[in-house]
Each structure stands twice: as structure tokens, then as C-alpha cells.
Simulated scan of single mutants.
Amino acid sequence: MLVRTVSIDAPVRTVAAAARHTRTVLTGFAAFRPAPVPPVGELLVPGDGLELCSGGARDSARGSFAVRRADERGVLLARPHDARCRSAEFEVALTGSAAGTSMTVTARPAGDPGGAELARLEEVLDGYPVAVREITAEWCGRPVVVAAAIVDEGRLLAQQRRRPARHAGGWELPGGRVEAGETEAAAVVRECREELAVDVRVLRGFGTDVPVAADGGMLLRAYLASLRDRSAAPRPVEHRAVRWVGVARLPELEWLETDRLLVDSMRSALEGAAR
């Protein structure tokens, strides 16, 4: 087992987003010439697969891995469920503090790796934190957009876009930009009042940040919330429709791409709120 621990002066949710960014993997695992299988989105999500190709066809098979976790706790790149695959397993563990984020990257080789393979693993342990730092530095100055996952009795509230045309019919969490002098929690409350005509109580943050390309680049940051008055009926003030969705139905909605990257974290947050 090989381990590296570094400190990054940035919020853990931003570092976590950089750690699951496709560019981080392509850069950090450069020694293995990574290739998505099939092509993946901007952020890795559980179920994605990649091949780390260090040589011929045999090495390609040994380098396959599957994304088992990609959230605010870190990233787990595990061996696929294939007895023939002898790839290493990589884990990124994140811990937040007032000073920033501590990131520990662990490589667990399969069997007894030779010198060349150990050298490649060392390159990953050195290169991955550098790639995370670079992307985190790019994002830290971006304006923040908040999203609210309003939960009630094991269900989450989603809203369907009416406009613009390219997003019409897609589903998303309510939310919007944080205004000057406004806290993120206050922005969640205001946006829910404007978009749904209800007052909410902000519970906690969940998931990683999600980069948004619009207007030169922003960061979407999600919060778990509840209705202050459970008898209140959210209504689509600016949208086409609203819907309460249970855990099992979350993947069935046609989420807008940015929100789709949070579905796994939505599921975990919803299950946690129900306990």
C-alpha cells in the first residue's frame, strides 16, 4: 500500500469536486494513459468505468477500474467485479477543517507489483494531488449558485424547467445565485420563496460542488432543506411543474446535466434524512 497526504487551502466540497473531475483523472493518471469506458461526464459518478493502459492489451485489462464512490468524502476507484482483473485500487479520502482540506491518496496494488508498476503508482500519488490543486485554484474565485434539496417523509422536491428552450422539460433542484452580501443559506431561503412560494429551513450542505460553465464559470453548491410549514404546498411560480420524488424514482427523471451529477448525493441525503 502506498499513501500520500497533502493539505489544500480550500473548502472540502470544492476539493471533492476537483478530485472527481475527469480532467484530474486524465492528468493525475497520465502514467497509465487513462481512457473513459464509455465516455464519462465532466465529473465522475458511481458506475463510471475507465481503463488505465500502461502497455499492450494485457496491461490494458489489468488497468481497468470502476468508480464506486465520488462524493464529498472522496473518490474510490476500485477493481471491477472481474476475477481476471488485477488492477490497483485507488482511494481519495477528504477531511475538512478550518484550515482547509486534508487529502489522503492511497494506492493498493494487486498482488506483488514489479518495479515499473510501483514507479507508475508513485507517479499517480504525486500527480493526482497536483491536478486537484490546479483545478481547485481555478474554481475558488467563482461565484456560487445554490440548490435546495427540499425533503419531506422520504421524498425530495424537484421542479421542471419551462425555459429556455434548450432546458425546457428538464428537471432540477430549486435555487439560484448568491447575491452580494448574502449568505448561501439566506440565498437558499430566498430562492425557494421566489420559485416555490414556500419558506424553508436550511439543514446542511451535501454533495460536492459542481462546476457550471454559464456566464464565465460558477460553482453549484447544494443544501438539504425542509419546509417550515409542512402543510404548505410548493407551487411552480417560475417553472412548468413541481413533483415530490422518492429515492427509487430519482434516476428516472430527466435531470439537467448539472443536477444529474448530484443524483447519487441526493439519494444518500434523502436516505439519511429519512433515518
Rank of each mutant, 00 (worst) to 15 (best):
A88I: 12
Y128K: 11
L118G: 04
A66F: 13
L262V: 05
R120I: 00
A110M: 08
G169L: 01
L156S: 00
S102H: 07
V105Y: 05
A78T: 11
G114W: 06
A186S: 14
A88G: 12
E191R: 15
M266K: 01
W171Y: 06
V12N: 07
R235Q: 07
W244S: 00
P38C: 03
R62P: 11
A116F: 01
E184S: 06
E172P: 13
D229R: 15
A274V: 10
G28I: 13
E172K: 02
G56N: 15
R69G: 01
D126G: 13
E179S: 09
D229N: 08
E184R: 15
A158M: 06
V242L: 08
A99N: 09
E194D: 09
P251F: 10
P234T: 02
A17P: 04
L262T: 07
R69A: 02
P39W: 12
R161T: 03
V151D: 02
A137I: 01
G74K: 06
V6C: 14
P251R: 12
A17Y: 14
G141L: 01
A147P: 05
L125W: 07
V6F: 12
A180Y: 04
A16F: 05
L43N: 07
R260M: 00
A213V: 11
M266N: 03
V75I: 08
E191D: 08
G63A: 13
R142G: 04
L121H: 09
C140P: 03
G114N: 07
L261H: 10
E42C: 09
M103V: 15
A147E: 04
L52N: 04
R163G: 12
V75R: 13
Q160K: 09
E182G: 05
V200G: 03
R166I: 04
R275K: 11
G141K: 14
R201W: 11
A274G: 01
L52S: 06
H239P: 03
I8V: 05
P251V: 13
R201S: 09
S102C: 06
D48C: 11
V67I: 12
A83D: 14
A180L: 14
A158W: 03
P174T: 09
R120M: 07
A131S: 09
A131W: 08
L253K: 06
A78C: 03
G100V: 03
E153L: 02
A168L: 14
I135Y: 02
P174L: 01
I150E: 01
T258M: 15
E134K: 00
H239C: 14
A93N: 02
P129W: 08
R79S: 02
R230Q: 09
E91V: 10
T208L: 06
P174Y: 04
A137D: 13
H21A: 02
S231D: 14
G169I: 00
R73P: 00
D9N: 06
G169W: 06
G115C: 09
E72D: 10
V202F: 08
R133L: 03
A93W: 02
A98T: 12
T104G: 02
R221Y: 08
V247W: 01
V188N: 07
R163F: 05
V12H: 12
A148C: 09
